[in-house]
Amino acid sequence: MSLPWDVFGVDATWMLLMAFLVALPCSQIGSFLVLRRMSLVGDAISHGVLPGIVLGFVFTGDLASPWLLVGAAVSGILVTLLVELIHRKSKVKQDAAIGIAFTTLFALGVLMLEFFTHGNVHLDASCVIEGQLDRVIYYPDWVLLGIAVPEPVVTMAALALCTMILIVVFYRALLMTSFDPGLSASFGFRPSWIHYGLVGFLSVIVVSAFQAVGAILVIALLILPAASAYLCTHRLKTMLVLAGVHAFLSSWLGLLLYAHLNAGLASAIVTAGMGLFLLAWLVGPVDGVLMKWLARQRAVAENQRDISKNVSERNE
C-alpha cells in the first residue's frame, strides 16, 4: 500500500487540507439542507449556477475572483425563483419544476462554456464533472508566517471560517426555521429570509467547491456527511460536529484511496464518504440498522425473561 506522503511528499498535506476545507463548509450547510428536506435544491443549484460561473469567468478571467461568488449567490437565488415561478403558476409539480429549471440553466452554461472559453484549460467540461482538486499544488503560493501556502487553500480557509462564524451567529434562527417555521416566525425570525439567505450562501459554497470537485460530486459533500451524522444523533449540535468529523475522515481516507488507486481524487473522497455512510447506516447509534436490530433482540430477550420470571413466580 502506498501512502500519500510517500507519493506526493509535502504536497499531500496541502491536498488533505484543501479537501477538508472544501468538505467542511459543505458538510455544515448540508446538515441544514437534509433537515429542511432541501437536499435536491442543492443538486439543482450546483448545476444551475453554471451560467453564472461561466459569465463570471469570462469577465474576470479568474475562477478565484470574489465577484464569482457574488454572481453565484445571485444565480442560485435565481434558480430557486425560477422553480417557484414554474410550479406556483402552473400545475407542474415542484419536482418537475426543479428538473426543468436546472437542466435548462445547465445546458445554457454548457453552451456558453463552449462559446466563450474555447480551448481554455482552466474551465472545461471535465472540470464540471470531475473537478480538479489535485491541481491545488500547481497554484501560486502565498507566504504566510514563512510558509508557502497555495492560494486556493487560503481562499477556502477564509470561506470555511466564514461559514463557521455564520452558523454560530445564526444558529438559533437556523435551528428554529428548520424545525418549526411557524414558531420561528412568531419569534421574529422570518423563515423566507432565512430560506433565501441559506440558498444564497449555499450557492457561494457550491461555487467555491465547484472547481475542486465538480458540479455533481459536490452533492456528495453536501449530503453524505449530514446524512451519516443524522443516523448517529438526535441533537443538531452533535450532528454538525459529527458532519465535520465525517468531512475530515472522508478527506483523509479519500486521499489514502487516491494514493493507493492512482485514480481521481474527488471521486476517491466521495467513495470514502460513501463507505462512512454505509458504516453509519449499519452501526449508527441512533438509526443504524444493526443497532436497531440488536436493540430489538435485547428487548425481545428481556420480554422473554420477564415472562418466564412471572411464570415461575406464579408457579411458586
Binding site: 428536506r37 437536499s39 435536491l40 460530486l217 446524512a227 474527488a266 466521495v270
Partner: peptide, 19 residues
C-alpha cells in the same frame, strides 16, 4: 432510517456516480 427520500436520492445519486 429516518432519512427522508430527498436526502436518500442525493446520497445514491452522488455515491453511485462517485464510485
Amino acid at each position: 432510517t429516518r432519512i427522508k427520500s430527498d436526502a436518500a436520492l442525493g446520497i445514491v445519486l452522488a455515491s453511485f456516480f462517485g464510485l
